[in-house]
Simulated assay, not measured.
Amino acid sequence: MAKIALITGATSGIGEACANVFARERYDLIITGRRMDRLEKLADFLKFEYNVNVRILNFDVRDRETTVGNLENLPEEWKKVNVLINNAGLSQGLEPINEGSYDDWDRMIDTNVKGLLYVSKVVSNWMIANGFGHIINLGSIAGKEVYANGNVYCATKHAVDALNKAMRIDLLPHGIKVTAVHPGAVETEFSEVRFKGDKDRAKKVYEGFEPLVAADVAETIWFCASRPPHVNVNDLLLMPTAQSGGANIFRKQE
Score class of each variant (00 low, 15 high):
Phe195Ala: 04
Gln253Gly: 12
Glu254Trp: 15
Gly33Asp: 08
Glu25Thr: 07
Pro229Val: 11
Pro211Cys: 01
Ser191Glu: 15
Asp110His: 11
Gln92Glu: 11
Val160Arg: 05
Val123Cys: 07
Asn86Phe: 06
Phe132Lys: 12
Gly245Thr: 05
Met1Lys: 12
Leu71Glu: 08
Leu171His: 04
Lys47Leu: 05
Thr241Glu: 14
Lys47Ala: 09
Ile136Thr: 08
Glu145His: 12
Ser140Lys: 07
Ile85Pro: 04
Glu77Phe: 12
Arg62Met: 14
Arg38Pro: 02
Leu171Ile: 11
Val181Arg: 02
Ala185Phe: 10
Asn20Ser: 11
Ser140His: 05
Ile221Pro: 00
Asn73Lys: 15
Glu145Asp: 06
Leu90Arg: 09
Lys114Ile: 06
Gly115Asn: 08
Arg64Glu: 14
Val54Asn: 05
Phe48Met: 13
Glu72Asn: 12
Leu29Ala: 10
Ala202Tyr: 11
Asn112Pro: 08
Leu29His: 01
Glu210Ser: 08
Asp44Val: 15
Ile7Gly: 01
Gly246Lys: 10
Lys79Cys: 09
Asp216Thr: 00
Lys3Trp: 01
Ser191Tyr: 11
Pro173Arg: 01
Asn232Tyr: 10
Ser120Phe: 04
Ile30Met: 04
His230Thr: 14
Thr111Leu: 04
Leu238Trp: 08
Val186Thr: 09
Lys79His: 09
Gly133Val: 08
Ala142Ser: 13
Gly115Ala: 02
His158Pro: 03
Ile14Pro: 01
Pro229Gln: 08
Tyr118Gln: 06
Asp198Phe: 00
Ile169Cys: 15
Asp63Phe: 04
Arg55Thr: 10
Glu219Met: 03
Leu71Gln: 02
Ala129Pro: 05
Glu219Leu: 01
Ala17Cys: 01
Ile141Cys: 00
Asn58Pro: 06
Asn234Leu: 09
Gly89Gln: 04
Glu77Pro: 10
Gly9Cys: 04
Leu236Lys: 12
Arg168Pro: 10
Pro173Asn: 00
Lys204Cys: 06
Pro183Ser: 09
Arg34Ala: 03
Asn73Met: 03
Met1Val: 11
Glu40Met: 14
Phe48Tyr: 14
Glu76Phe: 09
Asp37Trp: 10
